[in-house]
């Protein structure tokens, strides 16, 4: 029984980070109707950046985090301007836009493979092996740090969405783009901010994940997949739902990996996804209007 509780705790801690980067996927997905297939690759790039900064210059991942957020925000805005805006202007069919992002994901992943090879890198910060013991439960220091960071950042994002003018404009664009435009909101600017914010959150998850995960070029693909399942589970465009969904998926993955194997955990996550599509495509907090999920 004790190892199940241990697995659940580990799942919650990991799930917080799943929730964090899933928020980064659910916002642009909800606002622009475009799922970012390269999401996991941005997490991978951020993990590598934090690894190299630590390995070459001894920069602690938590210090890198302060640079990572604005840096990845800028990357996101750049990609939105260069790729998505152009495709929207050309009135590209949706499959073409999705494939373009898939191409970006393929490029980033093979770029990493090309440069850093099929090798596992471990970011051995001083607190990597540190643990806290609560009764029989052992909590890894980096995991706890990651969870706290994820909660703080998620709360900041929600405060941004609820309290600031730009955040409110973003929500308005999500609810009804045309009405928001009539109210004087420039939806293209909102698209840029939204996509930038999403990539920034992927970048923010990177240093936390790097402190207890191994860093390798193909680490991003599974993260993208997990983020998609989490986003559907927690309702498109809903940051609270994404965070909660992230923890649920984290627990499922951790517990099943503990009692069976990670491959079975993956099959279970896929089963959850298919069942969701079948019976509750609107997710935990959504409603369905005549087949259209929103």
């Amino acid at each position: 029984m004790q190892f199940i509780i241990q697995a659940i705790i580990n799942g919650i801690l990991l799930g917080g980070l799943y929730g964090l980067f899933a928020i980064g996927l659910t916002l642009p997905f909800g606002v622009m109707d475009i799922p970012n297939f390269a999401h996991g690759e941005f997490i991978m790039l951020s993990m590598f950046a934090s690894y190299w900064l630590w390995a070459l210059y001894g920069v602690d991942p938590m210090i890198y985090l302060i640079i990572a957020i604005p840096l990845f925000f800028a990357i996101g805005v750049l990609i939105e301007r260069a790729i998505l805006r152009r495709l929207f202007d050309l009135r590209a069919p949706t499959p073409a836009v999705l494939l373009c992002l898939a191409g970006l994901s393929m490029f980033l992943m093979s770029f990493a493979l090309f440069n850093w090879g099929v090798t596992w890198y471990t970011l051995n910060v001083s607190y990597r092996e540190a643990t806290i013991k609560v009764g029989d439960i052992i909590i890894g220091m980096p995991n706890l740090l990651g969870f706290i960071g994820a909660v703080v950042l998620a709360l900041l994002v929600m405060a941004f969405l609820n309290k600031t003018f730009v955040g409110k404009a973003l929500r308005a664009t999500f609810q009804n783009r045309d009405a928001a435009t009539l109210m004087g909101i420039d939806y293209r600017r909102m698209y840029s901010i939204c996509f930038g914010l999403g990539v920034a959150l992927a970048g923010a998850a990177g240093p936390f994940l790097a402190t207890f995960y191994v860093v390798f070029p193909t680490v991003g693909g599974p993260f993208t997949m997990i983020a998609f399942v989490v986003v559907v589970l927690g309702t498109l465009g809903d940051p609270r739902g994404a965070f909660l969904g992230g923890m649920i998926i984290g627990i499922v993955e951790s517990v099943i990996t503990q009692i069976s194997s990670s491959d079975v955990a993956w099959i279970a996550i896929f089963a959850i996804f298919v069942l969701l599509l079948m019976f509750k495509p609107e997710g935990l907090f959504g409603r369905r209007v005549a087949g259209v999920v929103r």
Partner: peptide
């Protein structure tokens, strides 16, 4: 490894 898919991606 990665070379071909890098070109495909671009």
């Amino acid at each position: 490894r990665g070379g071909v898919y890098m070109v495909y991606g671009i």
